[in-house]
Lab assay of single mutants.
Amino acid sequence: LAALHAEGPLAGLPVTRSDARVLIFNEWEERKKSEPWLRLDMSDKAIFRRYPHLR
């Protein structure tokens, strides 16, 4: 499970980098069924690119 911001401008976004990794992994797991070539990237760089508020 990932903790998400409940309200405000960040509502629905992950609270920590660990939470972001959970979301990225879950999405990758779903997408790899139809796109088996996808690589999993959970590096800090990938997290910041996707969720800049975690910098």
Rank of each mutant, 00 (worst) to 15 (best):
E30F: 12
P14S: 01
W28R: 01
K33A: 10
R17V: 15
A3Y: 13
L13V: 03
W28P: 00
L38V: 11
V15G: 03
T16F: 04
G8N: 04
E7K: 10
M42L: 15
N26R: 15
E29A: 14
L54G: 00
S34D: 14
G8F: 05
S18R: 15
A6I: 12
L38H: 09
V15F: 06
D19N: 03
N26P: 01
H5G: 03
F48P: 00
A46P: 01
E35Q: 09
G12R: 06
L1D: 10
A3R: 15
T16N: 11
D44A: 09
R17T: 14
S43A: 03
A11W: 09
S18T: 11
D19C: 06
E7G: 11
L54I: 03
P9N: 08
K33Q: 12
W37V: 05
A6N: 12
R50S: 06
V22N: 08
P14G: 01
E30V: 14
S34Y: 14
T16H: 08
A2Y: 10
E7C: 12
L38W: 08
P52A: 04
S43Y: 01
A2L: 13
K32W: 08
N26L: 15
N26K: 15
P9V: 09
N26I: 14
E7N: 12
A3V: 15
E7S: 14
L23T: 04
A46D: 03
A46M: 09
P14Q: 00
G12A: 04
R17W: 12
F48R: 05
E30M: 13
D41Q: 04
L13W: 05
F48S: 10
L1F: 13
E30Q: 14
R49W: 11
L13Q: 09
A11M: 12
R21V: 07
R55K: 13
N26E: 10
G12C: 09
A20S: 01
Y51H: 05
K45D: 15
E29D: 09
R50G: 02
M42P: 02
P52R: 03
R39K: 14
E30H: 11
S43N: 03
R21A: 09
K32S: 13
E29W: 15
E30K: 13
H53V: 01
V22C: 11
P14M: 01
F25R: 11
V22L: 15
N26Y: 12
N26F: 14
S34M: 13
P14Y: 01
P52V: 03
K45L: 12
L4Y: 07
G8V: 05
E30T: 11
L1T: 13
L10K: 05
T16W: 03
L4R: 07
L13K: 07
L54E: 00
P52D: 02
L40T: 02
R21K: 12
D44R: 08
V22Y: 10
Y51F: 15
D41F: 06
A6R: 13
E27I: 07
E7V: 13
P9R: 07
K45S: 14
